[in-house]
């Protein structure tokens, strides 16, 4: 699992790569620190290469979306594959995120 954060056209974008599970969620949380620090801005999570997300991984997303909500920023999830999208739907998070 790797997480790369880049600024594209003034939008802070994180590219998630691999399996976001219990073992990698802690690292991912640390890697996403730039997004947490700029929660009041426009943020993008690019999930094109995200293969899987576990409940621990969802927790990181929840934490981020709550922070963004508090600071009136804007977070969108892009390019989710069907499996990952399905996890969001099953877990009842689909309507909480801008997918």
């Amino acid at each position: 699992m790797t997480t790369e954060v880049r600024e594209i056209d003034g939008v802070l974008t994180a590219f998630l790569n691999g399996r976001l599970d219990t073992f990698s969620s802690q690292q991912c949380r640390e890697d996403l620190e730039p997004l947490f620090a700029n929660a009041g801005k426009k943020l993008v999570l690019d999930c094109a290469n995200l293969e899987f997300i576990s409940s621990s991984g969802l927790r990181v997303f929840v934490e981020l979306v709550k922070k963004v909500g508090e600071e009136h920023g804007e977070l969108s999830l892009q390019n989710l594959n069907d499996d990952v999208h399905n996890i969001f739907v099953i877990a009842g998070f689909a309507k909480r995120f801008n997918i």
Partner: peptide, 9 residues
């Protein structure tokens, strides 16, 4: 229908 998990929001 699915609602949000408990504790999240």
């Amino acid at each position: 229908d699915v609602d949000t998990p408990i504790g999240a929001f």
